[in-house]
Structures are given as C-alpha cells and as structure tokens.
Design a protein around this nucleic acid. Sequence first.
DNA 1: TTAGATGCAAATGGTTTGCATGCGT
DNA 2: ACGCATGCAAACCATTTGCATCTAA
Lengths: 163, 163
Amino acid sequence: MASIPTVPPGKGAPASLSGAWSDQSGCPFHDLRRRLRTVGLRPTRQRVGLGWLLFAKGDRHVTAELLHEEAVKARVPVSLATIYNTLHQFTEAGLLREVAVDGAKTYFDTNVGDHHHFFIEGENVLMDIKGQPVELAALPEPPEGMEIARVDVVVRLRPKKRS
Amino acid sequence: MASIPTVPPGKGAPASLSGAWSDQSGCPFHDLRRRLRTVGLRPTRQRVGLGWLLFAKGDRHVTAELLHEEAVKARVPVSLATIYNTLHQFTEAGLLREVAVDGAKTYFDTNVGDHHHFFIEGENVLMDIKGQPVELAALPEPPEGMEIARVDVVVRLRPKKRS
DNA sequence: TTAGATGCAAATGGTTTGCATGCGT
DNA sequence: ACGCATGCAAACCATTTGCATCTAA
C-alpha cells in the first residue's frame, strides 16, 4: 500500500481526482506513474510520492532540504540521499530545471518552460516572473565554436526602503 | 617593503593601470594602498598583494581557490581563510562583485560595472559579455514593497555541436 | 529473478569560525 | 602599544558516494 499522501499539503485535491479512479486519463496517480515510465524512471514509491509533492501544486521552487521536510510531513518515507538522486534524475529527464541563484543551495523549479526569476535576497525566496515575458533586447554573439544553451535572468529584489 | 610580486604573473604591468585604476600618481602600489585606505581597509601585505593580483591585469573572474594558487605562485604568503576574508571585504567595499552561476563555487568579478556574463558549462569558465550591452526589453514589475536591487543575466554556453 | 532503487553513514568540498599570534599605525 | 589582520585547524553545511538491503517488473 502506497504511503502516498492522501492529499498534498496546502490545498485540496485537484477536481479531477474526485471522479474516475478507474479512468486512466484523468487520474493524477496514473498520469504521474505513466509520465515517470515515459522518461525511463521506474515509478517507485518515493519517486511517485515526491513527484506528487512537486507537481500537484503548480509551479514550485524547492531545495532538497525543503522537499525532504515536506516528504516527512506527508508521510512519504524517503532519505535525503534519495531526494538528491530523484531531484537530479527528474532534472535530467526534463521534469525539473535547476536554478543557480546564490551559491549556497540549489533550487529546483517545476516550471520547465522559458521564463526567468525574481530572487529576494536575505529571504532566499525564488519566484517566477510572470506577466509579459522578459526578453533580451538582443542576444549576444557567442564566442567562436560556442552556442547558447540557455539564458538565465535573475532579478534580485530587496525590500523597498521607506522613509 | 613587502613581498609583493614584482610583476603579476602572465603579463607585464599595464602601461597606465587603465580604467578604474587610472590615477594621478602613476604608482600602482601607492594607488592601491591609498584605495584600500579610502574604503576603510588597512593596506596589509596580503591585501595589497591580492589587490595587485586582482586588479593589475584587467577584468578577471576568480574563485577563492584560484586566487590562492596565484598568490602562492606569486610569493604572496596568504592563507585560504584570509583569501575568503579579503574577497568578501573587497566585495563589501565595492571593489569586487560576487557572481552566482553554478552553486558549486563562488566567483568574484573585478568588473564592478553594469554588465553580464557568459558561462561555459562543464569548463566552469566565466567571462564578461562584451560588445553592445545586453539590455532587457522591459524590466519586470517587482512585487509590492520590493525594488530591484540588480539584474543578473547569465548566458550559458556549450561547445557548438558539429556533424 | 534481477537490475535498478533506496537508506544509511561516511566522505567530500567549499566556506566559515574561534582563537592565539602578528603586524600596521 | 593598541587593535585590527592573519593563520591554523576545527567546525559547518550542502551535497555525493559506497555498499548492503530492498523492490518493481
């Protein structure tokens, strides 16, 4: 029996969960398991549990430690080592994206699409920039023999100082 | 006086210590010592030695470890701990800028001006983007109560794949 | 059954810290 | 001489690894 959390902490189960359990297409668990298999990862208890924590709540930015805490709270038995393994495997599989912002800890973003980030210094909070996409006026010319793999934009924020 | 390297390794001293270093007196050592004092740092042997390694060769991107190696080669006796102290003190003083690119190690940039970076993954090489400045098409609206402290753009490069 | 996944604990690597000694003013 | 600066080694913290034990297929 799965030690998958009955409901992700924070909000209620998505609407699609309430109905068809036998129906493959609408069941988050089955979708997740199928998705893992598709990218070549065996849907083990902890991978499914972590996937559930990561993907059921919309866009998220987690560190290994944070995810571990959530897993513990959600009764998903998993070790820190496995958290790291899983995070990296998900990243290689294109399910997550790694974001480097402050050298101290590594953040993983469940939003794999093309977008950039706000980072609140001091609070260590990372968030997607929403609204119209942030675009560069012009892409710089890469050096000979190199090509652009990705462009990361981090807008660092600080509390507005008040008089 | 001091075990300051007669000449920084790699190239000879720049003709005029261009850029931020241009100054009336023309004597690099005195300029450096004065500059340190100006920002409230005592011009000790190691601070002057490290400052020389950092600023006499134009724009650089160093890690603590790299700078330490250079210091050893240049016969500037300094411990790793002091390298870290100095790097951070220089950064607070506005002589250096910290650049976060890959979570593993911290890079310090001697170019304090407004500019962005190329980062070659796998090689861990960081370089300034030169040519016309990289500008954002539009700055995103910061969340309520926050203001933009800085915008970092990192263009990640990989070797161009050839057929 | 069996390759692959997990857990634990020890190892690693970058960075920081405490404290006695050294050096710039 | 005073007090900040330095060096050393131990402490720290996030992350990785080795290896024995599980588990999904």
